[in-house]
Structure formats: structure tokens, C-alpha cells
């Protein structure tokens, strides 16, 4: 464990808890894409299957439970909680995210480190996490409301990915044979997606304009 990874995990946990807490408190999910939240729930469900079979550390297991619990709770709120569901922007959140799931699954069947059930699903979860933010970014551009709820959420998610890249650089130089191309490439692609968002977010903030 290194400071970059710990900071990354904390930022990631904070991003999902901020979102869950806000939805719970103001009973609204305006501007939030439920499709992105469903993709994240699938990412965690397929990545943390080993939670029952292998034990890494208390920290690891605890964090997995936090991510699983928060992502499924957010989906539940947005889909089944009456007050929150009413504020969901169904007309604008139209990204066909099941195609993302399908293409990531096919890609995982083609490119993986080992062809075992757990390993293919784990690789699938990496590919899916890289593109999971797309429905949210599309919704953001459509509704143009970069209100604090989604802005902070995406900012923290981007921060978590950036810290993870620093973590991989650190581990590469401190641990022999720490080479995981798939993790690195998908992590880089995901961070680049955020970089694009940050560029426009910063511009809209600097010029005090609506996000375009």
C-alpha cells in the first residue's frame, strides 16, 4: 500500500458517499445518470466476486463492501425511491449503455491475462469502469447543468483515477515484476476521458459560462 493508492481509494470512496449522501439528503438525483450508476454497480459486482474466496486484508474487504453497498444503494434510490425517482431525467439520460456492457464483455473474452472465469470478469470490470462515466458526461452536456452535485462527483472520480496512475508508477519502480498492461491502459483511457471533461469544466468555470 502506498500513499497514492490510499489517497486514491479515499477519494473514490468519498465520491460515491458524497453522491449517495446528497441524493439521500435532498431527495433528488437531478443531473445524475442512472446508467452510469448501473455500470458502476456492475463493475463492482464483477470485480469483487473474489470477496468470498480470497482475503487480502480487512481494509480491502471493508472497502469492497462500501463500494458495493453505495453503488447499489444509489441505483436503488434512483430507480425505486418514489421522491428521488421523480427527479430522474429519463428523457435526457438515453445513452444505450448495454452496448458498452456487451462490447466490454466481448473485449474481455478476447484480451485478458488468464482465461479463467474470475479473471475474465475482472478484466471485463476494468474495461467497463473505463467507459462507465460516458452516460454521465453525455447527460451533462445535454442538460448543461454542471450543478455542484455532479461536478464534485466527477471531479473526485477523476482525482481517484489520477492518483491510481501515480500509484502504478510508484509500484512499477518499487516492486519487481509489477507489470499489468491491461490495468494500466484501461486506467489511462479512463483518465483521459476525465481530462477532456476537466478541460471544459475549467473553461466554463473560468469564463463563468454554461458548460458546452
Amino acid at each position: 500500500m502506498n500513499i497514492f493508492r490510499l489517497a486514491g481509494d479515499m477519494t473514490h470512496m468519498f465520491s460515491v458517499l458524497v453522491l449517495l449522501l446528497k441524493i439521500h439528503t435532498i431527495k433528488s438525483c437531478a443531473g445524475v445518470s442512472v446508467k452510469t450508476q448501473e455500470l458502476y454497480a456492475i463493475v463492482f459486482a464483477t470485480r469483487y466476486l473474489d470477496i468470498f474466496t480470497s482475503f487480502v486484508s480487512i481494509y480491502n474487504t471493508f472497502m469492497k463492501l462500501v463500494f458495493l453497498g453505495s453503488s447499489f444503494s444509489i441505483v436503488w434510490y434512483m430507480r425505486y425511491h418514489k421522491a428521488v425517482h421523480r427527479t430522474y431525467d429519463r428523457e435526457q439520460d438515453t445513452f444505450r449503455h448495454w452496448f458498452l456492457v456487451l462490447s466490454c464483455l466481448l473485449l474481455a473474452l478476447l484480451i485478458h491475462e488468464k482465461f479463467t472465469f474470475l479473471e475474465v470478469l475482472w478484466t471485463f470490470s476494468l474495461y467497463l469502469e473505463a467507459v462507465a462515466i460516458l452516460p454521465q458526461l453525455v447527460l451533462l452536456q445535454r442538460t448543461r447543468n454542471i450543478d455542484n452535485l455532479t461536478g464534485q462527483y466527477i471531479f473526485l472520480l477523476g482525482g481517484y483515477r489520477g492518483l491510481y496512475i501515480l500509484n502504478w508508477i510508484y509500484r512499477y519502480f518499487t516492486e519487481p515484476h509489477f507489470v499489468h498492461w491491461i490495468t494500466w491502459i484501461t486506467g489511462l483511457v479512463q483518465t483521459l476521458l476525465y481530462a477532456d471533461f476537466f478541460y471544459y469544466y475549467f473553461l466554463s468555470w473560468k469564463n463563468n459560462k454554461k458548460l458546452n
Binding site: 493508492r5 481509494d9 473514490h12 473474489d50 480470497s54 487480502v56 480491502n60 472497502m63 469492497k64 463500494f67 491475462e113 479463467t116 474470475l118 479473471e119 475482472w122 491510481y164 500509484n167 499489468h180 490495468t183
Partner: peptide, 10 residues
């Protein structure tokens, strides 16, 4: 065992 080593990250 190698699964854990490669996937000790969240």
C-alpha cells in the same frame, strides 16, 4: 494465489 497478488487493488 497469483490471482490475489495481481489483484490486490480495489
Amino acid at each position: 494465489k497469483e490471482f490475489d497478488a495481481a489483484h490486490d487493488e480495489l
